[in-house]
Amino acid sequence: MRHITIETLIDYVEGLSSDAEKSDIEAHLVSCLDCTEIKQELQSLVLQLRQDTFFEPPVGLVQWGINLFQPVVRRAPGGLPKFIASLVFDTFEQPMFAGMRRVGTPPRQLLFRAGEIDIDVKIESMEANNRISLVGQVLPSATKFFENAPVKLESHGIVRYSTKTNVIGEFSFDEVPKDTYHLSVDLPEGEITLFCVHRGNS
């Protein structure tokens, strides 16, 4: 039994075979498991290649992903080190209690940790004017609070807003436009960066 060539099978899968070729191929496929298997693989491959363009994310979204990465700046002689805080708690990730129904968008609470320092952040979304309010507190492991520490809110690589912590390490940004921000806190130990403190509908 002569098997069907790959080229002939590709034409068949793509619907390019003539009626005569088509019936010959189909007659062969009924009795040949090897060719049937190759035909199925080709069908799956062609389908995957055709489908793939539907999975292309918007350019802006890919760029957002690329911009997420900010290389760690090496400590310059006499300069301060930079730390990236890791997210340890996020209410957005927590399920609501059984039976509870959500009314409006609840504030999102996040807790970041960098070494011995915790940073508590609460984001409240105001749907009416498409803005968010962000309040937080820098919590050291020792009893002394970080007072007067500069806090910056960056988006797209630019510092958009800045403030300073109060006597108990609290800071706030009121009614800033919705965007994806990086928050950084300058402390005597170094600069702590928190990735993405807000996303769209959170």
Partner: peptide, 28 residues
């Protein structure tokens, strides 16, 4: 990996905004 990530919410038939949220969360 952009298409791999984005293909999953698209296969789940998510709306564009939700698919974008998933993409961002996964990048993070």
């Amino acid at each position: 990996y952009r298409r791999l990530i984005y293909s999953v919410p698209v296969r789940f038939a998510f709306e564009e905004a939700d698919a974008a949220d998933v993409f961002q969360a996964v990048c993070l």
